[in-house]
Design a protein around this nucleic acid. Sequence first.
DNA 1: TATAATATGCTCAAAATGAGTATATATAAA
DNA 2: TTTATATATACTCATTTTGAGCATATTATA
Lengths: 351, 351
Amino acid sequence: MAEPRAPAVIGLNAIIIAVTDEVPRILTVQRAAHSLATPAQKGEAEAWADSPVALPFGPFDPDQHRTLELGLHNWVEQQTGLNLGYVEQLYTFGDRYRDPREQAGGPRLVSVGYIALVRQVPVSGAGEAEWRNWYEFFPWEDWREGRPDVIDQTIRPSLQMWLDGIDDGRSRQTYQERISIAFGTDTAPWDFERVLERYELLYEAGMIGEAVRDAQIRAAITGEATPPTDPEMLAAAEALGTPMALDNRRILATALGRIRGKLKYRPVVFDLLPPVFTLLQLQRVVEALGGVRLHKQNFRRLVINGGLVEPTGQRESQGRGRPAELFRFRREVMSERPAPGVGLPAVRIIG
Amino acid sequence: MAEPRAPAVIGLNAIIIAVTDEVPRILTVQRAAHSLATPAQKGEAEAWADSPVALPFGPFDPDQHRTLELGLHNWVEQQTGLNLGYVEQLYTFGDRYRDPREQAGGPRLVSVGYIALVRQVPVSGAGEAEWRNWYEFFPWEDWREGRPDVIDQTIRPSLQMWLDGIDDGRSRQTYQERISIAFGTDTAPWDFERVLERYELLYEAGMIGEAVRDAQIRAAITGEATPPTDPEMLAAAEALGTPMALDNRRILATALGRIRGKLKYRPVVFDLLPPVFTLLQLQRVVEALGGVRLHKQNFRRLVINGGLVEPTGQRESQGRGRPAELFRFRREVMSERPAPGVGLPAVRIIG
DNA sequence: TATAATATGCTCAAAATGAGTATATATAAA
DNA sequence: TTTATATATACTCATTTTGAGCATATTATA
């Protein structure tokens, strides 16, 4: 068994999530565009532009930090002034060239992603930090106002065109199946958790801004001519949301899928809410994360009968109609039921 | 945003799982005990003995491997002759001193764990590899023959004793809650997915062999006297399964919990079975992983009506009673239902 | 005072689940 | 050959959970 050498560096990415005004938001930072251009290919640097929108990132310093998570806490606090509550490891990303600087001899960058859920949305501290609607990056994932137009107007036709252009029958077959699973069919429902699968297909089909960018980078490095980019696909990329730096959008897709899955069997929503809340507020947060509308009365029944919340006796002051009762999270539920969560439906789109 | 330095090394751990004869097994390798002893403290090396039972481990070589997963495939194949089928990233472990050599100045070891599910159990290739029943490491997790004795005879009383010894009322309260959630109460059910939570509590209570070992290591390094180990706790450690090297048992607990969770909403079992199988074989594999007995007729209904399997028309040859029909996995189910899986009950212990 | 908006209570059918009983088809034993 | 035993499979039935909707309560505002 050989000793491991030390040829890679470890970084930490934070996906910091909050929900305000019924909008799920993530904290982004500005990333200087030139940080991608290495001296070796300054000239080519103008050929492609990386997005300045990035997830908060920091190096992991083993000398200073006892655990990965503590390291994360540390620089997040420094950079944004946030002190994180619930934190959970997401995934570790280590594909070659996820940082293009590798192509110019830079070290392999392995990043461990962490999800953090926060309540407050303090004006983000050190300058360039900014909260952004996460559906800005995944317009096809928000079904709260009905099935998003972009699916049938852009995604479906472009995917079909891409599929038709694949010569090998077998791999076309495989892709067809993946598309059905990810995007559903007339019979198959849309599965709200398959966020990453959808993003990856769109990337592979070249319909995502980052895919175009990465193809250009590869071409610039190998010295080939800029690859012919299908104008259809470029138009698609326009409609398919804001690009992010590096593979940050893939990381975000992973996080979104994870959160949606977790909602069903762990009471994670409450980390996004104040200590007391109305049932409608609770429902709106769940809907924001899930990207679906839920049946109000049944949602009520679910969380009350399920023992997830308990009434405080107080009622809300403000408001238009009848004042709502204020509830709080019942921590005891964790030791009462095996998998307490709020559950998303298969494909409900009711108001 | 500072550049990450390169002060840690990245390794890969494989949790390779197969089920044969209704026993869930993991592939282990022999780990030379002296690999933990550094020249700096050879003299102390006899004071504590690390277990030679380890998970397969290999370094990650970024020059050679395009992705972490490919790196894993590569050395697993070399070391064991296995070519892995379904592989999924589990978790990244980076706590300080998870490799005790760090205490003698060794580099921080960050390991990315991967779960692999395999069908065949070929006589494991290069020498020291060996399949072991995973319940050998977690005797309290197998409820197929009823509630394991070790829970009420060892775990319950020792946890209580430990709890009573905690002075601070607040932290005793917190621990009490964690114990209730992890191990259940008269009212609260046993949650089969909380494998890691249970392991961590037992470790923190000092009831696990590794906890004793790690306390001794720390003492040896800091030069303190060997800490007084409660003989009760040592006896508990005897009953609480085979220790593993480093933090490998924690990694394994993470994997077991993950697999049990996944069972419910993804058809992972089929990666452990031959292409055709009887429904009882399928059920036995699910039971082996979940550590529970299931109701036969209802299990049938679940997988057939759920569209998870389809009959082949063939029947099984051998056997005592009526020959069973052979089924195969219906891949189409993946695109029909949002979360196809087999589901484990809350706490069923019926034959 | 009427109207709109929201909260909350309740009903009812359909589907899923838990627990059995009954029957079919094989091998092994008498 | 018959009987016992083991397994597979089919079917029933009560209970619980879920999906959908109607009805009523309580507030602010026109």
